[in-house]
Amino acid sequence: MIPVLGGSGPVIPSFGSGSSCEQNNGWWCTDWLREHWGDTLQPALVQHIELVAIAIAAGFLIASVLAIAGFRYRLLDVPVGGFADFLYTIPSIALFQLLVPFTGLTVLTVEIALTSYTLFVLYRNMVAGLRGVPEDALEAARGMGLTRVQTFFRVELPLASPAVLAGLRIATVSTVSIATVAAFVVPKGLGEPIFIGLDQNLFKTEILAAGGLAILLALAADVALAWFARAVTPWSRA
């Protein structure tokens, strides 16, 4: 213990002086939610959506380029696919830390890690979708005199899109979930209230509320993307 100099009264640790919600720490405390929705949960939710949206957009772009390359040049598929698999086996909490020396305790660190996790699902689904285009369709395209580029945009891409969109759904839902670990590096997203709740003597209401929001956000994104997929690929039942 560090001796208190100056002697201006006893030093009282601050952790016992929370609201009645925090002192009782019951399963659910509506008062706390009402009080802290505006300053804790709502900003965390918005930050979480930002983290995920950027990672998915970046991952989708990178995976598209890689998938087109891996589809055209089969030799590339093995190393690229293997690397994406390997990235997926790195524990998220380790990947975040490995990047810190390069990019610091910043959002960029988080985005790089989250983006690498999306690659595994997106790349695999894109290549599978493109490979799954029936030979008949390609032959018909050739018979119609379409060029290579036209075949890609008018035949292969539309036929691969259900698989691509299925990958997008899976990647989005998982990223919403993994992004909670991001709070280990930067105090952003729904993971932050969870870590704070864990630190503050396991404050249940905060943990359950933030965790519940993360799960609901993931499920909402899944439903929204399912609708989107149905709207843009009306010919498939998915």
């Binding site: 899976i170 839902v173 998982s174 919403v176 979930s177 993994i178 909670t180 670990v181 993971g191 969870i194 870590f195 709740g197 864990l198 396991l202 249940k204 943990i207 359950l208 933030a210 965790g211 993360a214 799960i215 993931a218 499920l219 899944d222």
Partner: peptide, 18 residues
């Protein structure tokens, strides 16, 4: 399968702790 992907491990562990 969707719910499984949506469940953050941290939430599960935090919940399990309580």
């Amino acid at each position: 399968s969707t719910l499984g992907r949506a469940l953050p491990i941290i939430v599960l562990i935090a919940f399990g702790l309580t």
